[in-house]
Design a protein around this nucleic acid. Sequence first.
DNA 1: AGGTGGACCCGAACGC
DNA 2: TGCGTTCGGGTCCACC
Length: 279
Amino acid sequence: MPELPEVETVRRRLEPALVGRSFARVEIRDARLVRPLEPAQVAGELEGERVASVDRRGKYLIFRFESGRVLLVHLRMTGSFRHAPRADAVTDAHERAVVKLDDGSDVAYRDVRRFGTWLLLEPEEVDGYLAERLGDEPLERRFTARSLAERLAGRRAPVKAALLDQRALAGLGNIYVDEALWRARIHPLRPARQLGDDELRRLHRAIRDVLRAGIARQGATLRDYRTPDGGRGRMQRAFRVYGRTDAPCDRCGTPIEKTRAGGRGTWYCPTCQPIFPRD
DNA sequence: AGGTGGACCCGAACGC
DNA sequence: TGCGTTCGGGTCCACC
């Protein structure tokens, strides 16, 4: 599931291949990708656009063109990009779009579950679209323990549910939230507004540390996620809790438990992450 | 208004 | 072995 570290890894790989290149030919094979618009129409609009930058905001990839228009891509669950000198001869049933660049290389978009979206925005639409969906960028300086506290203040939802809300904080998904809460020694079902100052400082630190660790390992490949050159991430080897039911906690040896929070499978250490902390 | 659960997808894992 | 059922996860949306 591409979360911030996976999307950032993709961005870093695509950036040098795309900046300065034009979209020479675009084929959109799955109408879901651009609906309610017509695939042929969107493809036609994209052809001829030259890439000025490849950015990221939360889990969104942002392809900015020299015209000022923007292609906003969300990979959702299983979306991935593959950049290769030429399109693979092997036809992949899950390939939903292909962009041929003006240097002859191909950027292929693959998405097994078809949740991903491509949205072409006019220059004046971009900031508003992102601002109304996304909170602080966790690796930027303006994200602090204090700003985190402000976003969680008054929320009675479980802290995990609050952190999954992209308007509170941009980029966390089910995996990195569990990992961050383990590092911060906070139970995922604690009401967000009950966190104390020290817990908020630990959580702020843990979120940044775990996201940076994920980026350093090129993300986590559980099944579908790949980097644009076809490689796998290595962060899954460093998971402390996610998917580790009954495995001993790396900090205290207690078997990791699974529960549900925010409607998602949730793993935690019942000893390190007590629901009723002492302090 | 904030919080919760279902819908959208499809392959893999599971259960009998 | 085979086949039907369940699961999962990001975001949006309906509902309480």
